[in-house]
Design a protein around this nucleic acid. Structure first.
Lengths: 226, 226
DNA sequence: TGACATAGTGTGATAGTTACACTAATGTTC
DNA sequence: GAACATTAGTGTAACTATCACACTATGTCA
């Protein structure tokens, strides 16, 4: 029994709060980064937390997560995937909050620098500040999912700009999987996927041989491989 | 603002209903089966639907799904995994309902025959009756997840009884993946996993050579393989 | 023009996957 | 009790994929 027009809403049974949280990853020189935001309410002591918030009663879950992503980054068309729903009753000591967690991958060239007065900041995934409730676990699960998917999908390209070198691609794999790859075998494998092609252009950035640039043939598609 | 002691619950913002649904799979001669239940309310025209219901305000999500599983099958210790959260606003025309879907795997020997007066029945996953809302999609997603996991985990054993033959195991793979396996290669692979051992006993069931029985060394563990 | 730094390339050994057909053990029938 | 029907159980060789490994190429800058 929902009272739509009134500012109060009365139900015959108590209902939990439903929120979405978004783990936004990007890759910088220092490795995999996560976007965190400062909590506004005094309850959380203004500590850092995942961006997210309550789902409006007629809002699609993924749309809610997209909205959060857009409001934090100003970007559209970013890869977003539902991760898991966390619903331990003790998650929040004040009220029952169930959160549908998503994760998003930001290409490094679309990373707009966060304004100094913005409440958001990037943190290396290996050096996170204290986080409320189970949010550390949420990030850990997101990271594992991402690492798992590198092996059997083309998800890695979602972290790369439109043009990239094979070295860039290898760095994505090394940063996420936390293990070195053999350069020759990696390049053979990456080209053998049949998903990327040389643009014919090169990147010069230092006192050394320039690197060939590649592009993804289907940039939006995340496909299952082998 | 929750009013705990009162039969009415008042919130300053409308809240969706949160439910869990459980896709309970088992394997019979006729292939992969799903448990469905008859809706009691007139609204759904007494049609078939996935077992599930609203999550109590202080009940853990997985516990809620376990409870549904137990009430339908009378069984404990069944494999249960969170599948996905379905939250399209149009899912239910009456009210906003978000459902956290789980899937469960019943070993074929623990399958208690459903009483005739019970509202539940097994359906072949390829011949489901009309289902409300997106429940057909939920079952399809569960099936895909299960098929995907066969390839890289030991989840298949969750569908088998404590003692089984290599032929039984092969039937699980063939039914879920819907593709024939080569007998010799399959057996080599299955034994090479190092997860099963012969019990020393045999099963005789027909005018032919009896089959050796095997057991899983760690029956509860679902591990990632290769 | 030489030192430096990163880009780019191939081969051989090993391990894993695939295709493939007959013998073994039982129960039933005549 | 011999023949038959039926499912269980077994090995090998060809092919494919993965892995380990080190040098040459091409640019900048001093």
């Amino acid at each position: 029994m929902v009272t739509r027009t009134s500012p109060v809403h009365v139900y015959d049974r108590p209902r939990p709060v439903l929120t979405t949280d978004v783990v936004i990853f990007t890759l910088e020189q220092q490795g995999l980064q996560v976007l965190l935001t400062r909590r506004q309410d005094a309850y959380h002591d203004r500590g850092w937390a995942l961006p997210g918030g309550p789902v409006a009663v007629h809002e699609d879950l993924e749309h809610r997560a997209q909205r959060e992503l857009r409001s934090r980054t100003g970007l559209e068309g970013i890869y977003l995937e539902q991760l898991y729903t966390f619903g331990q009753p003790e998650r929040d000591p004040r009220e029952r909050i169930i959160t549908v967690a998503y994760f998003a991958l930001l290409p490094s060239d679309r990373l707009v620098p966060v304004a100094d007065d913005a409440p958001d900041a990037w943190f290396a995934v290996d050096a996170l500040p204290p986080l409320p409730m189970d949010q550390g676990e949420i990030i850990a699960v997101a990271r594992e999912r991402l690492a798992g998917k590198l092996a059997y999908s083309t998800i890695a390209f979602q972290l790369l700009p439109g043009e990239f070198t094979l070295g860039d691609l290898q760095e994505v794999y090394e940063a996420v999987l936390r293990e070195r790859q053999d350069k020759r075998n990696f390049r053979k494998w990456a080209l053998g996927l049949g998903r990327i092609e040389a643009t014919g252009r090169e990147r010069r950035n230092g006192a050394h041989r320039p690197a060939r640039l590649y592009r993804v043939r289907e940039p939006r598609a995340v496909e299952i491989i082998k």
